[in-house]
Design a binder for these strands. Structure first.
Length: 640
RNA sequence: GCCGGUGUAGCUCAGUUGGCCAGAGCAGCUGAUUUGUAAUCAGCGGGUCGGCGGUUCGAAUCCGUCCACCGGCUCCA
């Protein structure tokens, strides 16, 4: 007998060799039908696997993340089974579950698959699912496993098996498809009721661009057909929020083939939005003792040789600019920090002067790979809300915490309440990618971890995500659709002060080296605004809206009254305009609504006679007729 | 950079066995209309069919190449 402990603390005895599924059935049939896998102690198992020891057991269903993972992983096997049936000779590599769905990387040889083939593959998958095949687990020796894949000529699986321990290798089989897999899997294939292949893309074997290019087929599957419908609906909603589309519709920014790939053009309304954000941040920074500086867009090659950027990125970046005079070489500025270091050096600093906080909305240029460019999210020319804080080592902790406060303030003000702080540390295997001493790295890493902890931030640690000169605290925000984006960043840097030989005179009259903090709460205006657009679907809060008020006269006769309203709004500092076109009011409302203008004021005979405006709030509709004082109060309330 | 896909007017899109002067709606311009809560009516103008090269009697349509964009991979100071 084995003792099984349930999540509620109950313990029941079962026969040795009982399966999770049998336990579920002993509780209720409806539970048994929902079980996808079980969590036994801390491991996820097949519900059909025999249990031979005392254990705590939790049933995993579609409602559990791990249940979904099992479901999607099994769906990946189903995809493979369908591909094997439709494309004989295809070689399989790996096929995991991902955040939402699954993929399988396959080597199709000379063939190719496009989205036109999806319907056929989906159909085959559902046909195979209906066979209600079980996933049979079997232990297999390393030698046998190798022999199997050598026989069918699958070098990928051979490579995978070579990296595994003998005695630790399992195969799973459903229908005619056998796969090297550690599992677990769902009880049978017919739990999969709906399947959608989402896209097909290239992927490198083992993520290495020097190795074979495979075909990755992405899909998602569900235990109920209506869940697929919801999924499709959600994807469509996300598409409507695409910042590239909304940016075009609202006239915020544009790209031009003639100007160049990844080089955004900011249109008047986008520039307005950007300037409002900039003013907001500048104001907050002034309160925290920052000083604004400005630096040129290019600098001598030696500047970046000193900083280390040239050695790290020189080859893969925009190539040097040569002057008519020989031997002079300039580079486009990839970062502001080297310039700021030189600003620091214009003065002999006393410990009494520190921290020195230099801020710049600095535009930088980086040659991103062509395939990486993506709307405003990834561009080749962008403006950082950059600042560099030069402080004494003993000031570092307080400065860092003050910066965290600023970042949190910015996020809160802009409606991103759900965020996590990612502590980005060095790659543990490959330390050669980084500059600076081991001692300084450790100090910097510790400073970040401590500050994040003291501020009570929700943190995760990621190795290999550090910058080449220091560790980072990166802020990942979740938007309205639950998608995660990296925005702000704070970095501690001991290296550049050394490279630039930065100094201050201490109370002991000796020269000391300051520590630098790099920080950008938005990251870049480009990226931040892209995320802001996708989060708000272009319905910006009143204080950010490039156009806040549209005044809509019923007919030409009321233009003079509309002008009066406009003047009053402008005197109060609101961004407003009048729609003078000889269109019907329905048309004016429609156009203002399409532009997502927060306040629409309809003015006609009644309003003109009584000194009123009929208010429409975008997203809400008619708010009735009010006088100007009430309108200002209404809008002011929204601004606060 | 790599794999796959796409590229027709300012925008959204028709136009596939290669063949009349390449189409529509919206937007624009002109005129009429003076309007009460999400598209007033009429007329007019607008396109090197992404660029270049090729096949062909003939190319938006087929082939090559380059560019841009989209989805991934790799990368991200």
């Amino acid at each position: 007998m084995v003792n099984i402990t349930f999540p509620d603390g109950n313990v029941r005895q079962y026969e040795d060799g009982i399966t999770g599924m049998a336990i579920a059935k002993s509780i209720s049939n409806s539970l048994a039908k929902k079980v996808l896998s079980i969590k036994i102690n801390d491991e996820v198992w097949d519900a059909t696997r025999e249990i031979h020891t005392d254990a705590s057991v939790r049933f995993l269903t579609w409602d559990d993340t791990e249940g979904k993972t099992t479901f999607w992983h099994s769906s990946a096997h189903l995809l493979a089974e369908a591909l094997q049936a439709l494309y004989p000779g295809v070689q399989f590599t790996i096929g995991p579950a991902i955040g939402e769905g699954f993929y399988y990387d396959v080597d199709l040889g000379d063939r190719s698959i496009s989205s036109e083939d999806f319907a056929k593959i989906e159909k085959k998958m559902l046909e195979l699912a209906k066979q209600k095949n079980t996933f049979e687990r079997s232990d297999i020796s390393k030698a046998e496993a190798l022999a199997h894949y050598e026989k069918i000529g699958n070098k990928y699986k051979v490579e995978l098996i070579e990296g595994l321990e003998d005695g630790d290798i399992t195969f799973y089989q459903q229908g005619d498809f056998v796969d090297l897999c550690k599992g677990p899997h769902i009880p049978h294939t017919s739990l999969v009721k709906a399947v959608k292949l989402t896209n097909v893309a290239g992927a490198y074997w083992r993520g290495d661009e020097k190795r074979e290019q495979l075909t990755r087929i992405y899909g998602v599957s569900f235990p109920k057909a209506n869940l697929l419908e919801e999924y499709v609906h959600r994807i469509e909603e996300a598409k409507k929020r695409d910042h590239r589309k909304i940016g075009q519709q609202l006239g915020l920014f544009a790209f031009s083939e003639r100007v160049g790939s990844g080089l955004p053009l900011w249109l008047p309304k986008g520039t307005k939005l950007r300037n409002i954000l900039q003013d907001f941040l500048m104001d907050e920074q002034r309160k925290q003792g920052y000083q604004m500086v400005m630096t040129p867009h290019i600098g001598r090659k030696e500047l970046y040789v000193t900083s280390g950027h040239f050695a790290k990125y020189g080859e893969d970046s925009f190539q040097p600019i040569n002057t008519p005079k020989e031997g002079e070489v300039y580079l486009l500025k990839p970062m502001n920090c080297p310039h700021h270091c030189e600003i620091y050096k214009t003065n002999p600093w006393s410990y009494r002067d520190l921290p020195v906080r230099l801020a710049e909305f600095g535009t930088v240029y980086r040659y991103e790979q062509s395939g990486e460019l993506n709307g405003l999210l990834r561009v080749r020319g962008f403006t950082q809300d950059d600042a560099h804080l030069f402080c004494m080592p003993e000031q570092l902790a307080d400065e860092f915490k003050a910066v965290i406060d600023l970042v949190v303030l910015v996020f809160t003000k802009l409606g991103f309440s759900d965020f996590t702080a990612q502590v980005s540390l060095r790659d543990q295997e490959n330390r050669a990618k980084y500059i600076g001493s081991e001692e300084n790295w450790e100090k910097a890493e510790q400073a970040i971890i401590d500050a994040a902890k003291e501020k009570g931030l929700k943190t995760v640690i990621e190795y290999g995500e550090a910058a080449f000169y220091g560790p980072k605290l990166d802020f990942m925000v979740k938007d309205a659709l639950g998608r995660s984006w990296q925005l702000g960043t704070i970095q501690v840097d001991y290296s550049l002060p050394e490279r630039f030989e930065l100094e201050y005179t201490g109370a002991d009259n000796q020269k000391h080296r300051p520590v630098m903090i790099h920080r950008a709460p938005f990251g870049s205006f480009e990226r931040f605004i892209a995320v802001l657009i996708e989060n708000s679907a272009g319905n910006f809060p009143l204080w950010l809206a490039p156009e806040q008020v549209a005044i809509l006269p019923i007919s030409d006769k009321f233009s003079p009254y509309a002008d009066q309203i406009l003047k009053q709004l402008q005197e109060k500092g609101f961004r407003a305009s009048v729609d003078y076109r000889s269109e019907k009011i329905g048309r004016k409302i429609r156009d203002a609504s399409m532009q997502k203008i927060p306040y629409q004021l309809v003015v006609g005979e009644k309003e003109a006679n009584e000194g009123l405006v009929a208010v429409r709030r975008h997203g809400e509709g008619d708010r009735g007729t009010v006088n100007m004082d009430d309108l200002f109060a209404m809008m002011q309330a929204e601004l606060n």
